[in-house]
């Protein structure tokens, strides 16, 4: 292998074959991928099929706590899991920019393999393209995922009712804060690492135990908890009232947000889920989540109230305010 990706790695000749075989197929080795057919043949799947896709374009591709590969596997798996599906198979499609470091690519692929192994999913098919220098941002990855719903659980935003609890599986904003610090090379020394993690085992465990008492789940990625709850409010007509004092945020993320003027409510997470659960199940669900390493900071952060739909917050000093969609990115401000 060369040290960097060359245009010829994408031209379909020997270099392409070498790249696919030595870097990709060998790492992701499994019986579905191994024959390198034009499709991965998944066999018979028993249950309702869930299908999802997502593209990953993060800069820098390797950041504290993870990299774009881990993100691409976990993100798609988590999208399956929050719909109650057991992840089965992934596709992964790479767009590499000419000149991208092969060593970095290997790091990224190793993480993909580890995350897939942990999440008990196999990579069934893939594709690689190389674009000219300047036409890409190092590496883009698109993954699609297939999962199976076995126990008949379905997301039911319409079943959300006053008295339900809003549960968050851990601290907010770690992923975006970690990436932001890495991206802007801010001279802030911080222990913040991305929370990127596969949540399937934890979330499917909760569903097995609490079944329809869990009304709805979603991973608060882009836009964070603030946006995700607004989406759920829109879909369900519910009124969520959060308790500012119960929102879990790590000290590092809080510090960075205070300095830069960001609100952790709107920062992306890659290893967290919001669960709307029956009022009687709130404490039980939190207890169950806390037994999992990815849920140790799980907490009830609010509840569903009677009244006009939307997202609101009881502030620590006792006021009440709206939590709306943000517009555009949070930007560094003048003062």
């Amino acid at each position: 292998m060369t040290d960097t990706i060359l245009l010829s790695h994408g031209e379909g000749g020997k270099r392409t074959r070498d790249l696919v075989r030595t870097l990709f197929a060998r790492r992701f080795d499994n019986p579905v991928l191994a024959p390198l057919f034009d499709s991965g043949l998944l066999g018979h799947l028993d249950g309702e099929i869930a299908f999802t896709t997502d593209s990953y374009v993060v800069t820098p591709p390797i950041f504290p706590g993870g990299n774009i590969g881990k993100l691409a596997v976990c993100g798609t798996m988590n999208d399956l899991s929050v719909c109650g599906a057991r992840p089965v198979a992934l596709s992964c499609s790479f767009i590499l920019e000419e000149g991208f470091s092969v060593a970095q690519l290997e790091t990224i692929l190793d993480s993909m393999k580890d995350a897939a192994t942990e999440g008990n999913i196999f990579i069934a098919c893939g594709d690689t393209k190389v674009v000219e220098k300047g036409k890409g941002d190092g590496i883009f990855i698109t993954t699609s995922g297939v999962g199976v719903v076995r126990d008949g659980w379905r997301p039911a935003p319409g079943a959300i009712r006053p008295g339900d609890r809003v549960v968050l599986t851990g601290t907010m904003g770690d992923h975006q804060a970690a990436v932001m610090i890495a991206r802007n090379r801010l001279s802030i020394s911080s222990p913040i690492v991305s929370d990127v993690a596969p949540l399937s085992a934890m979330l499917l465990g909760v569903l097995r135990k609490f079944k329809a008492q869990v009304r709805f789940m979603r991973d608060p990625t882009r836009g964070g908890v603030g946006v995700t709850l607004n989406e759920i409010a829109e879909a369900s007509g519910a009124r969520f009232v959060l308790d500012e004092g119960r929102l879990p945020v790590s000290q590092g993320v809080r510090g960075v947000c205070e300095i830069l003027g960001f609100d952790p409510l709107y920062l992306a997470n890659e290893g967290k889920a919001i669960l709307i659960v029956d009022g009687s199940a709130g404490d039980g669900v939190v207890g169950h989540l806390r037994e999992n390493p990815y849920g140790v900071n799980a907490a009830i952060i609010g509840e569903v109230a009677e009244g006009k739909s939307g997202v609101f917050m009881k502030t620590t000093v006792g006021g009440l305010r709206a939590v709306d969609y943000p517009v555009g990115d949070q930007l560094p401000r003048i003062c």
Binding site: M313, K314, T315, V317, G319, R321, I334
Partner: peptide
């Protein structure tokens, strides 16, 4: 003031008027 929901706490005693102190 808006973020802390402070108006809702003091409205019986104080009418808060926002001034021109946003440079943008």
């Amino acid at each position: 003031i808006a973020r802390g929901g402070i108006r809702s706490l003091v409205s019986s005693r104080v009418a808060l008027i926002s001034g021109p102190g946003c440079p943008v």
